[in-house]
Nucleic acid binder design. Structure first.
Lengths: 204, 204
DNA sequence: TTTGTCCTCTACCAATTGGTAGACGGCCGC
DNA sequence: GCGGCCGTCTACCAATTGGTAGAGGACAAA
């Protein structure tokens, strides 16, 4: 593993857990057992390093998505959602820092938000297109594909990464509860997406 | 307005937008047109100031929730959800920094997460209890009240605060789209919650 | 007037921050 | 052998960090 790759991996881990502002180049160099100046040799500034880490994270995330979605019917929205949930939950378990970094990079006002979303734009467009088709065919409930996708994203990402809120609600983020959480999340999303065959009438 | 209150308000604004690590006491003092040491007189350290800001934010958030929920039938889950959505969206528009601070304080590994969730525990318990009742009565779809509440929280908070993701999906976070976003979110949540009178059968 | 408390200030501090300058060694093509 | 690039290093830097020490003003109680 090249030094450059080692730096990227360690920085991703630290940026994703401690945050960018909370990570100093000195601490990073200590973790790597490397001189700080060697980091700055490969990445001319902390900001550039951050951008490279975001790129790296986006690549990994996309790779995970692609490998999971591979072979799934692109028009079966529910199956696509299921794949996305599986990917995110696996990452939450095995690579929490990666999700943490995505969260960090998509903070309001983030300097790298555009870069990150640019890398994901192809997948976003594809998902949006599939949702639009499903909507117009009546296979999915809703009125606006973009807003629907946004809701799906928020729910999945929140349920997977908001560990402190989870604890507050009495759900320990352990391996034991993980399957249960994923099942309930999928049920929730399916209920939200599947159109009701007859109007249920909201009789509150 | 007392100096102490001014410090709290300004710190909430800065912590909620720039983050705690991204806010220096010097910058804060500059914003306040006050000597940094005056801040440290009222709050002995930055960490203590952060805790006080979290308390302040929790109080404001709870006050907003209470005033909105006041008079709404505690057993009408849908109406309660609607109130919560209304509060969060109003805050997203008028006090984005407050939501930003809640997000900051609930970051994984945050030192103040326990404090924040403790302040909200009463409301969490109440919501959970109402959901449990509705679940056992069959008025709401789902299997686990805690996980259901967690999903609702993630969706609402995400849709309200993930402005960069919103932009990535082609939704400008403007006043014009706000009503539309709220309507679609409510439709989404209702679809997820309202039990289907006859099994719709997931025929993908 | 004196005393004491509250609050804000100037002056200062050691540690840490991101970043620069440049020396040194290994390794490749010549 | 040797010039040149690559990568890592030591040494250093100015600026900023959170925090301390202590002076002094305002004001109320005595």
């Amino acid at each position: 593993m090249s030094t450059r790759q080692r730096i990227l991996a360690t920085a991703l881990e630290s940026f994703g857990t401690t945050g960018v502002d909370g990570t100093s180049l000195d601490a990073l160099a200590r973790d790597l057992d490397l001189a700080k100046q060697s980091i700055l040799y490969h990445f001319n500034s902390k900001q550039i390093l951050f951008q490279a880490v975001v790129d790296e994270a986006a690549s990994e995330f996309i790779a995970e998505l692609d490998s999971e979605v591979d072979g799934v019917d692109p028009n079966d929205v529910l199956a696509q959602v299921e794949s996305a949930v599986r990917v995110v939950f696996r990452l939450a378990l095995q690579r929490p820092a990666l999700l943490g970094l995505l969260r960090e990079a998509s903070r309001p006002g983030s300097s790298v938000a555009v870069q990150l979303t640019g890398r994901l734009s192809h997948h976003i467009d594809a998902a949006q297109g599939a949702l639009e088709h499903a909507l117009s065919d009546g296979r999915v409930a809703g009125t606006n594909a973009r807003l629907l996708l946004f809701s799906l994203y928020s729910t999945i990402m929140g349920v997977a990464t908001e560990v402190e809120v989870m604890r507050a609600m009495g759900v320990e983020p352990s391996l034991r509860t993980l399957a249960e959480r994923r099942t309930e999340l999928l049920r929730f999303l399916e209920a939200a997406l599947v159109p009701q065959t007859i109007s249920a009438g909201v009789t509150s």
